[in-house]
Measured scan of single mutants.
Amino acid sequence: MTYRVRIENADGEVVTIEISADELREKGLTLEELLPPNARIVEVEEVEP
């Protein structure tokens, strides 16, 4: 499974990243732990691999 994640950074700019569930598991991280300081998740969407 892959996630498309929209993130708002500290400057108010919204960027989109895609990350797979396998990648998260391998790194032992959650989506929140990948965020840079002062950023927030705006939207998470599951996409087909």
Rank of each mutant, 00 (worst) to 15 (best):
M1F: 13
M1Q: 05
M1E: 03
M1R: 11
T2S: 12
R4C: 03
R4A: 02
R4V: 07
R4L: 09
V5E: 00
V5I: 12
R6Q: 08
R6E: 03
I7F: 15
I7P: 00
E8F: 11
E8P: 01
E8K: 08
N9I: 14
A10M: 12
A10K: 08
D11W: 10
G12W: 01
E13G: 09
E13R: 13
E13N: 11
E13K: 11
E13P: 02
V14M: 12
V14T: 09
V14G: 04
V15Y: 15
V15T: 11
T16Q: 06
I17K: 02
I17A: 01
E18T: 12
I19P: 00
I19Y: 06
I19E: 00
S20M: 07
A21D: 07
D22T: 12
D22V: 11
E23T: 10
E23V: 10
E23W: 15
L24H: 01
L24W: 04
L24K: 01
R25V: 09
R25D: 06
E26G: 08
E26V: 12
E26M: 13
E26D: 11
E26N: 12
E26T: 12
K27E: 03
K27N: 08
K27W: 10
G28E: 04
G28Q: 07
G28W: 04
L29P: 02
L29E: 02
L29G: 05
L29Q: 06
T30A: 07
T30H: 05
T30N: 06
L31M: 07
L31Y: 02
L31K: 01
E32R: 09
E32M: 12
E32P: 06
E32F: 11
E33M: 13
E33Q: 14
E33C: 06
L35E: 00
L35H: 01
L35V: 10
L35S: 01
P36N: 03
P37A: 10
P37T: 06
P37G: 05
P37L: 10
P37Y: 09
N38R: 06
N38F: 13
N38W: 10
R40P: 01
R40A: 04
I41N: 02
I41T: 02
I41G: 01
V42Y: 04
V42K: 04
V42N: 01
E43W: 15
E43H: 14
E43D: 14
V44S: 02
V44M: 06
E45Y: 12
E45M: 13
E46R: 13
E46C: 12
E46N: 06
E46V: 15
E48C: 08
E48K: 13
P49A: 14
